[in-house]
Amino acid sequence: MSTDGTTLSVHRCRFVDYVPSAITALAFPPLPLPSAKGKNVVVRKALKFGTLAIGRANGNIELCEWSGSEQELQAPQAWVVRKTISGPFPSKVDSLAFTLRNPGLLPPDETPKFADLRLFSAGGGSELAEWDLENSCIRRTISSHGGSIWCIAPNPASTILAIGCEDGAVRLLSLEHDTLSHLRRLDRVKSRILSVAWGPPVPREKQSVINDEGSDDDDDEEGDWADSWIVAGCSDSSLRKFDVASGRVGERMGTDKQRGERTLVWAVDVLGDGTIVSGDSLGMVKFWESKTCTQIHSFQAHGADILCLTISPVSLAPDRTFSHC
């Protein structure tokens, strides 16, 4: 009641102390590959941010978009959640990966839109899930045939998905023609595959065909890149480089150990010039030369495990930057 005798209504409200679920995985969409023959050469411009997928410990996946314009680095709201996909209960998201639905149809100078993408996730079990982004539900699942899935990574052409499994094998799944099926298994090693990354693609050797007019025409440009090798971070203090064509282990890179305990290589990625970057349970970021598989640099980045690495997918140029956490 006020001093002049007027009665006032008081509304009392209590706010819930909301604590969001922990973020366990992040994924950005890849960019389409340029022509390996030098045709339709495109000078990369400053592209706007693509869709950001955020995986959480409660199994939910948030799809976020940048609220600013293409030339605006500082946006009022920055990342805005466009859609939240509720995962089955109980579940979690340990790995996320975007691929292009039709990589041959997307111009190299265009940022992939929502409808151009496919999203895959793994949650610590033996099932890989592909999500229907429009209907916010699981589109299909496939078993790893090798125990728990520790990591997933698509090749630069978005035609193959590599998964690292509990049984020490890297398995390749075909994504061509909007499918999801087992393609082959690389040589098995005696440790878990904790992280996996693809090396830079190389131009595929093509044969010319003679048309009716007697002139030479090259094959269709689709598939004019070939995958060369895969690097995997393992649970036995090492990284291994696999040859994609033969599926065999070519080289082994050993990391540092502490008090005789095994070092876990939680994260691995590859720069545009083929340089391998790894992050491990000792908090070390290491750079490796991919041809000789020798260590180039080593940095004590953290006092705790390095759980993820990311490299900007601007182009295949060797000067791509990286960040770690």
Score class of each variant (00 low, 15 high):
residue 288 W to N: 07
residue 303 G to I: 11
residue 208 S to W: 09
residue 228 S to N: 15
residue 227 D to W: 05
residue 298 S to F: 00
residue 234 C to E: 06
residue 258 Q to P: 01
residue 224 D to M: 00
residue 259 R to M: 08
residue 287 F to Y: 10
residue 228 S to Y: 12
residue 291 K to P: 03
residue 250 G to Y: 12
residue 265 V to I: 15
residue 195 S to T: 09
residue 228 S to G: 14
residue 210 I to Q: 06
residue 248 R to C: 04
residue 317 A to F: 08
residue 310 T to S: 02
residue 252 R to E: 07
residue 252 R to A: 01
residue 255 T to Q: 11
residue 282 L to S: 04
residue 243 D to F: 01
residue 304 A to C: 02
residue 217 D to A: 04
residue 263 T to R: 09
residue 185 R to T: 15
residue 245 A to L: 00
residue 297 H to M: 02
residue 208 S to I: 12
residue 195 S to E: 08
residue 248 R to T: 10
residue 205 E to P: 01
residue 267 A to M: 00
residue 269 D to K: 13
residue 269 D to F: 13
residue 227 D to V: 10
residue 215 S to K: 14
residue 207 Q to K: 14
residue 194 L to I: 05
residue 263 T to V: 11
residue 255 T to G: 05
residue 274 G to C: 07
residue 286 K to Y: 01
residue 265 V to K: 03
residue 279 G to H: 11
residue 271 L to T: 15
residue 243 D to Q: 09
residue 287 F to C: 03
residue 306 I to E: 09
residue 224 D to P: 03
residue 290 S to R: 10
residue 278 S to P: 07
residue 191 S to H: 01
residue 191 S to K: 01
residue 257 K to F: 02
residue 311 I to F: 06
residue 187 D to K: 11
residue 276 I to G: 09
residue 310 T to Y: 00
residue 245 A to S: 00
residue 258 Q to S: 09
residue 239 L to Q: 01
residue 268 V to T: 07
residue 239 L to R: 06
residue 292 T to E: 03
residue 205 E to L: 08
residue 195 S to W: 07
residue 284 M to P: 05
residue 302 H to I: 10
residue 239 L to A: 07
residue 259 R to S: 13
residue 237 S to E: 12
residue 266 W to Y: 12
residue 295 Q to C: 14
residue 226 A to D: 07
residue 309 L to R: 05
residue 222 E to P: 00
residue 233 G to W: 01
residue 283 G to N: 14
residue 272 G to Q: 12
residue 316 L to A: 10
residue 243 D to A: 05
residue 190 K to F: 12
residue 234 C to L: 15
residue 294 T to Q: 04
residue 193 I to P: 03
residue 204 R to E: 08
residue 236 D to A: 05
residue 183 L to F: 12
residue 249 V to A: 01
residue 189 V to N: 00
residue 286 K to L: 07
residue 216 D to V: 13
residue 277 V to P: 08
residue 266 W to I: 01
residue 251 E to P: 03
residue 210 I to D: 00
residue 312 S to Y: 08
residue 224 D to W: 01
residue 276 I to Q: 13
residue 193 I to M: 07
residue 247 G to Q: 13
residue 186 L to S: 03
residue 303 G to D: 08
residue 296 I to L: 11
residue 276 I to D: 08
residue 206 K to Y: 02
residue 306 I to C: 08
residue 197 A to K: 04
residue 253 M to K: 10
residue 309 L to V: 08
residue 306 I to V: 15
